[in-house]
Design a protein around this nucleic acid. Structure first.
Lengths: 331, 331
DNA sequence: GTGAAAGCGCTAACAC
DNA sequence: GTGTTAGCGCTTTCAC
């Protein structure tokens, strides 16, 4: 059906080996042969079948990235960084979405098992340390954005604890002492670290918050609304809120606004991640910024280096975050 | 290095053919053999190498989807729909981002040329009709979300013209007559159709708008701001704006708010696409909703049917949109 | 019900 | 500088 290397060889009057050599720019091929082959390739619209090539070479030149969710606007930026870096080595990045489902995630990892890709990057995984470690034992994988507690796997992420710490410090620095937090019920590494850093900062500054200043739910937008409803129903209302994600921060802001609270004046809100909408929102949202693009580049570079066998890097790389203060925390 | 079908055959005491039969559930294999093979597979942690399988079968069971941009929040929903539908047929969806660059898009289409995927869906392409047609001639491709004028290729999209028409009608229905539009300078099919529909509605209702009620720029957020600055600097200001994308609508709203205009009262704004943030924004944004998930499902189903050779469908499927009225157009 | 063997398209020894 | 050939891992006829 489709034109193969054999067809090209025949039409160009050379052997398949020569065609292959031209294709791969390897070894010595006479100018005449090179020209003949290249012309024939164009004429016949030949494109090498990578299934054959990859099978033979035992590489695919592509790596998979699995996104747990499609709604998280950091991921595309990370992937863009990976793409840029991977392209330098002739690698493609292909991505898929697991919908935070272990079953789907595993199905997608099949590409790793069945050698359709050379490696995989998990932007947050549903697997536990044991599973991830076993995976890393046999394949080239890396975690990005979200580590796994106890995993001994190449990881690139911000220092979430320090991020949470800095968020709290920023609020304290603005004079707040009644600070509430919107966090997660589930024990997600990044968020529990952010929470940990938050409390560490409070403790350092001698600030003690009541239990009902802590709301734990899910990442869902609605949870941010519910949290604020709880906070604003208290007789002693908080004057500031740290939300462990921007979506929750946006929800908190919207809910508070609807309840007539002036954001940035009566109530300060800071989020985490610094998604694009933070500076498009009304008011603009303060946040902790992750260097997504750089994270993507780094994780790709490290993983590729592992794949190429140059290293067997299982390091945990902590990237520097930035505190972005905007209208939601006052001016 | 890694365990192959041969290893399994040897360990299980059968031939590779039998292992293959068990793997594919094909033909008759004795219970004993089946059991032996399955057990050996588990023991050896065997996973078939798809490069071999795919090469042999001339299929990859995966289709590629190319996103022009990573910032468009409709795409993930469309892809989710595709994934769901494709899974039914045992197909994987893998995606990549072209950054609206023809060169990158073409590089990613290599996966199609070199048979790494069985087909591709383009969520808006930088290619012209001729190129797209040539592509469709030799490969299985489909367009989704964004058609190409003059292309004879399987396409799934909303009726953009009708969408623009309905948006204008909605504003007119709310009593507006001074209606401005934020559109694109570039001749992108979807936006020019939206614009066309907009003007059609105006004409039908005998409404004539001055030239400076029309702002044409890019998809960039900043353009929405600039547009509003222009509109609000006029002595005869518009009372309503139709933005051909939600990002531009959000920008318009933010800019107008900052200039002290009360959205929904003094100025109505309606966007297009109905991205998630429309109902999270302050105020919530009216928009024209696209049935993303369904579009993804349909395009996957149709493309797969083409791939399977059941059809050679080059139809243009128009999906029904919905008008979502929210706070930005008044209550 | 099972095995032997051909061959998918390609690359890389090896020989000349 | 070039051709011949083995073989990557797999499926599938074709015998038996």
């Amino acid at each position: 059906m489709s034109v193969t290397i054999k067809d090209v060889a025949k039409a160009a009057g050379v052997s398949v080996a020569t065609v292959s050599r031209v294709l791969n720019g390897s070894a010595n091929v006479s100018d005449a042969a090179t020209k003949a082959v290249n012309e024939t390739i164009k004429e016949l619209h030949y494109s090498p079948n990578f299934l054959g090539r990859n099978l033979r070479k035992c590489v695919t030149n592509s790596i998979l990235v699995i996104q747990p969710s499609s709604e998280h606007s950091l991921y595309p930026k990370i992937i863009a960084g990976m793409q840029e870096e991977a392209a330098l080595e002739g690698y493609d990045i292909i991505s898929s979405i697991s919908n935070e489902t272990r079953e789907i995630e595993n199905r997608q990892l099949n590409m790793l098992y069945n050698r359709t890709v050379d490696g995989a990057v998990l932007l947050g995984t549903m697997f536990d340390a044991e599973t991830v470690n076993a995976l890393a034992e046999n394949y080239h994988i890396a975690l990005c954005c979200e580590g796994v507690e106890g995993a001994d796997v190449l990881t690139v992420a911000v220092d979430d604890e320090l991020g949470g710490y800095d968020a709290a410090k920023a609020l304290i620095g603005l004079g707040h002492e009644k600070i509430a937090i919107i966090s997660l019920k589930d024990n997600i590494v990044s968020s529990s670290r952010r929470e940990k850093g938050f409390f560490k900062a409070l403790k350092e500054c001698g600030i003690d918050i009541p239990e009902n200043y802590v709301y734990r739910g899910t990442y869902e937008y609605q949870n941010g609304c519910d949290a604020v409803k709880q906070f604003l129903s208290l007789k002693d209302k908080p004057t500031a809120i740290f939300a462990i994600s921007d979506i929750l921060a946006a929800a908190a802001i919207k809910q508070a606004s609807e309840m007539g609270v002036e954001i940035g004046k009566e109530l300060a809100v800071i989020g985490f991640d610094d998604i694009t909408w933070c500076e498009k929102f009304i008011p603009t949202i303060s946040s902790i910024s992750q260097p997504c693009y750089e994270m993507g580049r780094l994780v790709a570079r490290k993983l590729l280096s592992n794949i190429k066998g140059e290293t067997k890097d299982k390091g945990y790389y902590k990237m520097a975050h930035k505190v972005m203060l905007r209208e939601s925390t006052g001016k």
